[in-house]
Design a binder for these strands. Structure first.
Lengths: 336, 336
DNA sequence: CTGAAAGCGCTAACAG
DNA sequence: CTGTTAGCGCTTTCAG
């Protein structure tokens, strides 16, 4: 069935299209009486304004884009939830683009934004992103952008992150306090600033405790699960295995559990593990996993809140350049 | 910076707008030479067609809506991934609406569709949805719809589900085979057909084994986590507790683990558990959880594939009314 | 092969 | 207070 439009309403009520339009937007130019007639009929006919027509006219769409590496990931899922909650409140629609950790997809997604389809963008960059030329285009496009979690440091957009360096430092210190001597770092792409911060937190904690960093214990992983399992397997079954692991990525901690189950390595007796993670089941793993838990929902929520202020150009005075929401270390049996 | 449009290109090349438009759409009316000039310039200027203008004109938006109860849920996250993968392939944009298990949100989301903003809808209904009047509006709107997982049985839209009845039957039989005598069923809203199917599978498996169903062991849960924990707690600490639990909802299985940890109840010795679940960590729980795992990614992927055929009116002959993708029972220690 | 022109539904300036 | 009109950028007849 063809949806009702302004013309339908105008015809029915013997009014002009513009009067109907103004009435619906509650313009001061229109009499109460007319407004009532119009809104009543609109409700009756389930009138919904055509978003293309008004988008075309007003150059705004009440839509934002969320560009993230993946959705099957507890952190991004929770962040997404935080974004959606506030978007729904504000009456915005949310378009999602997954880059699948692939640069070409990220570029394609950004190119979509050029068309004016969305009023703003929330973004977490993919692990392949090293050079920023495509992100700089965001500047040219002149669209509000807020980065969250995996931010791009040298671009002039607000950033919402967690205290990656401090948390990583604490995590490492936690292992040291648990008497670990050979602590491994499981990280991801060196292109990501959050990974570098976590790595630095790790290194500085070692240094502060006069432990020499062993390059053999600092592993960078990519997105290939099979390969990652092998790397972890050879590390743990090789000579001089670590007695503590700080994983900067949830997936790698789960992989480590898998390997330990396979090789019958006892956690925490033979190796202790702490990981950045938003697993809801961390407490029920065998053994329960000590985590650095990021406030994922809040990060998404806050990033979206800033974006909406940017879009609606309200309170522009107090748009922060950076927001850092603290993560929480929750000690469980895997580091006991 | 203002994005390039057809006029920009036309002016630059001394061509008419319509020629440029046709050239970009590779019309047979346009010479190869002109096409090349146009596409080259378009690439150079990063031309992206204005989606509002073409949406307005063509009454199609290359956009679909996904309406789901929640995103912080392993099943829906994976389904979403399946949807996104094929949508991206097909060049479609994906709008997500979360109903948060609330009928009023579901109605609001459906009302958004009326405007022609999207070309099709993928939907999983919320647990509050009993009466279908708002879903019937989908019919009036005349937009392609495909239901997945939480389908609405009596509406004439394709449905993609898993074999809920059979899987529930198997799950219950699995507990019976493991020597459970008092098997509890943890379910959700009675409004959802999948819940009824799972409950029926449970009941029929009991019947087939000449076990009398005990109403005290059949629990319906809602979305209130605290309350659910209490209910499970009193069941397990009461007299005549179950020696087996079949949970139709992942979250309830996790809640059960929590209570068992609290009350120091040994799984599987005192109570065995099997649950519908897409937890990636099921194997690493203490103890590993026996699951009925739905092919969540595939369900999303298949539902989207059907939707796109519907939208593009291709292969309309073989649009299935129903697709059932099988779940897998993976036996682990929680039922050993 | 190319161009002119109408119109999708809405908004906003301007007239009345 | 209400109506007329132009035009957002694109597609699509229809003419040439």
């Amino acid at each position: 069935m063809k949806p009702a439009n302004l013309k339908t309403l105008a015809l029915e009520l013997n009014l002009s299209i513009s009067t109907v339009s103004k009435a619906l937007r509650d313009s001061y130019e229109i009499s109460q009486e007319t407004k009532k007639k119009v809104t009543d009929l609109a409700k009756e006919l389930n009138y919904q304004p055509n978003p293309f027509a008004s988008g075309l006219r007003k150059k705004s769409s009440k839509t934002i884009a969320v560009i993230i590496p993946e959705i099957a990931n507890n952190f991004f899922t929770l962040a997404m939830d935080g974004i959606q909650v506030i978007a729904q409140e504000m009456g915005y629609h949310v378009l999602t683009y997954l880059t699948q950790e692939t640069l070409s997809n990220e570029i394609a997604s950004i190119n979509h934004l050029r068309s004016g389809r969305v009023d703003g963008v929330l973004m977490s960059i993919c692990s392949e992103t090293s050079n920023n030329s495509h992100l700089e285009m965001l500047n040219d496009i002149g669209i509000p952008v807020v980065f969250f979690d995996r931010v791009c440091e040298n671009l002039p957009f607000p950033k919402v992150t967690t205290d990656d360096y401090e948390s990583a430092f604490k995590a490492t210190q936690h292992l040291i306090d648990a008497n670990c001597k050979r602590i491994a770092f499981f990280g991801g792409s060196r292109h990501l600033s959050i990974m570098n911060k976590r790595r630095n937190g790790y290194l500085n904690a070692l240094e502060k405790n006069n432990i020499e960093a062993d390059p053999n214990l600092m592993l960078d992983f990519n997105d290939n699960n099979e390969e990652n399992l092998q790397i972890i397997g050879s590390l743990l079954s090789g000579k001089n295995p670590p007695d503590g692991i700080f994983s900067a990525i949830e997936k790698l901690a789960i992989n480590t559990y898998e390997i330990c189950y396979q090789l019958d390595i006892n956690i925490p007796n033979e190796v202790k593990i702490i990981s950045f993670s938003n697993l809801r089941t961390a407490s029920f793993l065998g053994p329960p996993l000590t985590t650095i838990t990021q406030p994922a929902f809040e990060i998404g929520h806050e990033a979206a809140a800033i974006l909406f202020r940017l879009i609606e150009k309200k309170q522009m005075n107090d748009i922060p350049d950076k927001v850092v929401l603290k993560s929480t270390l929750i000690a469980r049996k895997s580091t006991l």
